[in-house]
Each structure stands twice: as C-alpha cells, then as structure tokens.
Amino acid sequence: MSDERAPAELPAEIREAVPDWEDEYLDRVSDRLLYNYDLEKDHRAGGERWDLYGKLRVRSQKQFFHPALSYADHEAEEYLFARRESRPTVAELERLVDLGHDLADERVVPDEEHFGTDFSFVLVADEISDDVREFVSGFRDRTLLKFGYHGHYEVNLVVVVPEKEDHVASEAADVAEAFTLWDDVTTPDEGLLSRFAKRFWQ
C-alpha cells in the first residue's frame, strides 16, 4: 500500500464506521484494511462467528464518450473472515474450504458482469504445525463459472502467528500482507491487493 495514512487522517465518517477491536492485534490489522474493506466485528456467517469480517468490492467500467454509454462492466469482490484459533488443523482448514464453497453458492451471482469473488479465511494461531504449513502453502482452489464466461470464485487460506512473526498463506491470498504487521507495507514490491487488482484489470 503506497499511501498508508494514519487512521486519524481519514475522513471522520470513515473512521466512525470502523469498529474497535479489544484484540490489539486485530485492531492494528483493521488499520491496514480499512482503506479497502468495509469492516465488521463479531460477524456471523455460515453458522460461525468471526472476530473480524471485511468486504471489498471493485467495479470496472469502460465508457464511450459519456458515463451513460458504458460497456464491459465487471465486478470483483472479496469476503474476508478472520478469527483466533489456537492450534488449527488440516481438518479445520478443509472444513473452511467447504464453507467457502457454500458461501459462494449463496453470494456469487454468476453473470456476464461477474469477474471474480474471493473468500479468504484467516486463522490467528499460537503455532503452525508442519502438516498445516504444508497444506496451506500448496493450496489453490479456483472455480470457473460457466467455463469462465461468468467469472470465477476462489477460496484462500492464511494462518498467522503474530507472537512469532510467522505465517503461511495459499498462493492467491494477497490479504495476508495486512496480517503480517512485522513487515513494512509502506513501500512494498506489490501492494496489499495488487495481485487481486491485476487479475481484475487484465
């Protein structure tokens, strides 16, 4: 993120819409996310509670001389779900992948304007076991809709251990950058959502 301003520099209506987290780590993460996501805490989805929830929406529109004469409209979204899970297991992660597919059935509207939707699950843990690290690092789950004519959706996984400054993320989980507070994102090689944006604009 090239412009990581302090939250106090944002317009008051944006700051007031962002909740405060008692969890200091998640509260600091929200300071990175609030520029791009609509954020909630204690959110329920798929019958489960999430400490932090975010929604990102990007719309591309090409115009022919005038905004009313638009064409090639496309939309991309990301749904972010994060919570504390002391010792995540591969079975738990597989269950979250299934939840991602269930949420896609509920939330994705497959049509010509849909480009892509990401469902990203982040578990804040005390440790990362070897099997979890192996599972997440090699994970990629992308589903084409109508052979790609109606876009796609993707399930992403991240496990992060803030106290040890350690994390593992699946291949397309760009949001992991917001959760690695020990890394400087003021001048990154790629911005917080750069690869997501590249996939959208290409």
Rank of each mutant, 00 (worst) to 15 (best):
D27N: 13
L52C: 05
H43D: 05
P67Q: 03
E78A: 01
Y35D: 03
V58I: 10
Y79P: 00
L34C: 05
Q63N: 14
H66S: 06
L52Y: 08
E40N: 15
A45K: 08
A68V: 01
E75F: 05
G47S: 10
R32S: 02
S70I: 10
F64V: 01
F64N: 07
K62H: 14
E75G: 02
D31P: 01
E75W: 03
Y79G: 00
E24Q: 15
S60M: 03
Y25S: 10
S30D: 00
N36W: 06
F81Y: 12
D31A: 11
L69G: 04
R28P: 12
R59K: 13
L33Y: 05
W50V: 10
L26C: 02
N36T: 04
G46C: 07
S70Y: 14
K55I: 12
K62P: 02
Y71I: 07
D23Y: 06
E24P: 15
Y79F: 07
D73V: 14
Y71L: 08
H74T: 05
E22G: 12
D51G: 11
F64I: 04
S60E: 04
W50L: 09
E77I: 00
R57H: 10
E48W: 02
H43C: 08
E77W: 01
R59G: 08
S30K: 00
R49S: 15
W50I: 08
Q61I: 12
E75N: 03
D42H: 09
G47Q: 10
D38L: 13
E75H: 03
E77N: 02
D23T: 07
H43L: 07
Y37N: 08
F64Y: 01
D27P: 02
L34Y: 07
R28E: 15
N36V: 04
E77L: 02
D31T: 10
S60C: 00
D51T: 12
L52K: 07
H66K: 12
A68I: 00
D42M: 11
Y37D: 05
Q63I: 14
R28W: 13
A72W: 11
D42I: 13
D51W: 09
P67N: 04
Q63L: 13
F81L: 12
Y53R: 09
A72P: 05
D42V: 13
W50S: 10
H43Y: 14
E77F: 01
E75C: 01
S70L: 15
D20F: 12
L69K: 11
R59N: 10
L52I: 05
R59H: 09
F65A: 14
E78C: 00
L56Q: 08
F65N: 09
A82P: 10
Y25V: 09
Y71T: 09
N36K: 05
G46I: 05
D73K: 15
K55S: 11
H43R: 08
Y37I: 02
R49C: 10
Y71S: 07
E77T: 01
Y37V: 02
K41D: 11
Q61G: 04
L80N: 08
D73C: 06
R57M: 06
W50R: 04
L33D: 03
W21R: 13
Y79I: 00
L34I: 07
